[in-house]
């Protein structure tokens, strides 16, 4: 038994002399800091999207996410604390596989998120928590960490729309800050979504932004 351990130790020493020692922690950090070149929100992560105004494209981002999810053929869940989802302006058919949960308070919305993230049937979970950032910031950190762990354990997407940065345990924080202009009313939905996707891609591709948010 001891001989085997010695042999293993010797092999390890040989290997480290050739390739150098890299700790497991630093490997993890490298992965976190690596910029996301796919240009889209990564799965298995808790992503926060801070919408600095009322008219910056948060709801259009939700539609974009729903459209992408529909192609996968799985369910999407929308936790709506603000109760602002408008079916009339949604592209027809996107509601087919969408579950709309209209929460009445912050506790309900966090619990609903917890339940939905535990269910693999929902490959996309979006929460619009923009109506009550102050109370949510006061929520215990363990609630957010639990949600983060659940997001890591699943394959799907988890996006939280907020008015301001909610918790330090978000894996990635994006910002939508450009207000819609009057001309946008006459623009096609696809063009608007492309603009938002571009904004997100710019933030994801920028190593500085990603490193800063990951830290």
């Amino acid at each position: 038994m001891i001989e085997n351990a010695d042999k293993r130790a010797a092999t390890f020493r040989k290997l480290t002399s050739k390739i150098g020692v890299v700790s497991a922690a630093s490997l993890q950090l490298t992965q976190e800091l690596r910029p996301n070149h796919s240009g889209w929100i990564p799965p298995s992560r808790m992503v926060e999207c801070v919408c600095t105004g009322s008219s910056v494209g948060g709801q259009s981002l939700v539609e974009l996410l729903l459209a992408k999810n529909l192609k996968n053929g799985s369910f999407a869940a929308f936790v709506d604390l603000a109760n602002g989802f408008d079916l009339d302006s949604l592209s027809l058919g996107l509601e087919e596989r969408m579950l709309w949960v209209r929460c009445q308070n912050e506790t309900q919305s966090l619990k609903a998120l917890d339940l939905l993230l535990r269910d693999d049937n929902f490959s996309l979970v979006v929460a619009d928590l923009r109506s009550s950032s102050k109370h949510l910031r006061q929520a215990p950190a363990r609630s957010w960490y639990r949600l983060q762990r659940l997001s890591h354990q699943r394959e799907g997407y988890c996006v939280i729309l907020a008015q301001e940065h909610l918790s330090p345990c978000m894996d990635l924080s994006l910002t939508l800050s450009a207000n819609h202009r009057f001309a946008t009313l006459n623009q096609g939905r696809t063009n608007i979504q492309q603009t938002i996707a571009q904004q997100i891609a710019e933030q994801l591709d920028s190593p500085v932004t990603t490193i800063a948010e990951a830290i």
């Binding site: 709801q59 602002g84 989802f85 592209s91 996107l94 623009q187 939905r189």
Partner: peptide
């Protein structure tokens, strides 16, 4: 083809 209908303008977020 059945669900992506051309829509104009951004999505509405209602106040209820």
């Amino acid at each position: 083809a059945t669900f992506v209908l051309p829509r104009i303008g951004p999505n509405l977020r209602r106040c209820r």
